[in-house]
């Protein structure tokens, strides 16, 4: 993991107007991975899109970390089911013209 791709959490707290404890909670639930670089806690920039989604769910819907965890698990399930559906759909095409 390159340091240049890491974003310091204190900047994110200011940026999104959110408390550090929120990120700690996400980290405790395994929803994000916080890394320490020279005594500064950071998150990888590839995880920003997911993190923003978590912040929106927290701010817009007042979901706590447990709720966000549940939502992410369900969204993962939907994603997997959609992939399975796509594969099944493609398998069916083999038999369409028979």
């Amino acid at each position: 993991m390159q340091d240049t791709h890491l974003i310091p959490l204190p900047s994110l707290c200011t940026h999104y107007e959110i408390e550090m404890s929120f990120f700690d909670g996400l980290n405790d639930h395994g929803l994000i991975e916080i890394v320490s670089v020279e005594k500064t806690y950071c998150i990888h920039q590839d995880k920003i899109a997911d993190l923003e989604k978590m912040i929106r769910l927290h701010q817009d819907l007042h979901l706590n970390v447990e709720g966000i965890d549940a939502v992410f698990n369900l969204l993962d399930k939907i994603d997997n089911l959609q992939t399975e559906l796509m594969i099944a759909h493609n398998k069916l095409k083999r038999f369409e013209d028979f």
């Binding site: 989604k53 929106r56 769910l57 817009d60 819907l61 007042h62 939502v71 969204l75 939907i78």
Partner: peptide, 14 residues
């Protein structure tokens, strides 16, 4: 509003 937001939030309805 909260009821609608929970139902139609774009992150829950990709």
């Amino acid at each position: 509003y909260r009821k609608m937001a929970r139902k139609y939030h774009p992150d829950l309805n990709p």
